[in-house]
Design a protein around this nucleic acid. Sequence first.
DNA 1: GGGATCGTAAACATGTACCC
DNA 2: GGGTACATGTTTACGATCCC
Length: 361
Amino acid sequence: MNKNEISQYLFKKRSAVELSRWLRTVYFPEITTRFNNEEFLKRFALYQNEKIPTNERNLTDVRTRMGVLIEFELARISNDLFHESNVHNIFLSYVVANRFPDLEVRDNSGNRYLRFEIKCLQCKAEEKSANFDTLKKDIDPSSDFVIVCLWDWVDQKNKNIEWDSFPKIFKVFIFHAYSLASLRDTYWLNNPPQDLGEGYQGFDIRYAITCKKGIYSKEQGNYGKLTRIKTKADGFNYSPQETAELIDTENEYNLFKEEIIFLGFKIIAQEKKHLGMNSISLKENGNTYGFKKNHTAFLLSSKLNKKIFHETSFYITNNLTQCIVMTDKYKSTIYKLKNKEIKKIKTDIKPKKIIDFIDPV
DNA sequence: GGGATCGTAAACATGTACCC
DNA sequence: GGGTACATGTTTACGATCCC
């Protein structure tokens, strides 16, 4: 990344699609690499058996706080990078009011160029529902991008810094904000609740408005939840205009949704208390649908073509005695093979409670 | 899919003690 | 009673889930 390149892109002298691709393949990968460096990570890491909350309520708070800190550090790294590249008339500024977006590229005169809304999601969170609810009227198609960072804690020792675990950014996804909002609104407007009554679902000047039995109310905070923007197979009655930015964003969205659900599943399966890091991938046609170690397997239901966990042949072929099958929100069902019969041991339980019902690996 | 929750960070509103 | 300085209570908004 050189001075010329940074100026060209950050001063938005390129099309939205070019910008999207550059942010995705050049700019954010560089920032992420720098973030995932021990000198940075040591400021976030957990040391000397420190514990963070495990109960749902406070776990969420930690995630919220991590989101703010990661956002701040990404901006800081970015500003360092500009300096290194000898770019002094451009910087990322923090938007301190609670409004869209989070970060804005400015020059020393205060002129505004690219704008970033940063969303940080912990992969193994049971429901990834950070929401992007900025209305289209507040989004500038030429400059606004939604940046989604997937992160999680990694239990891995380091020879220089004696931490127990550190937060790693696994992947960053870049969305053209206006296109993401178009996809969101098309899906939402085409899927109103069943009990609208005589009313409609739509927007007022500030919010999404929904309706129940003819009574209007401000939408409850589900609008724009990132993993509910759309499902891959959705056909729209009224499609958004298929611009190059929209197609780019839709592709990125499908990748994002698949990746974060799978990464969260992988992290849970490979936790120390479950299979551990050195488990074996279970694949079909090069597509990983689960992990196994010794006689235990973890399977991601949405990756399976058929319900192999009901078939004794699957257990015999893979030398398994138990399978933990997870939904996209990681609700789990445990099956065990006993006397050539498959029995459902426990169903619909949270990942952290699984351990009580599975045999030691 | 719809709804509820809670930490954080305020802004705004009301209550109370005290001094003059 | 009026003014003032705190103290306490209420409401609002955001963000990120979690629950049913």
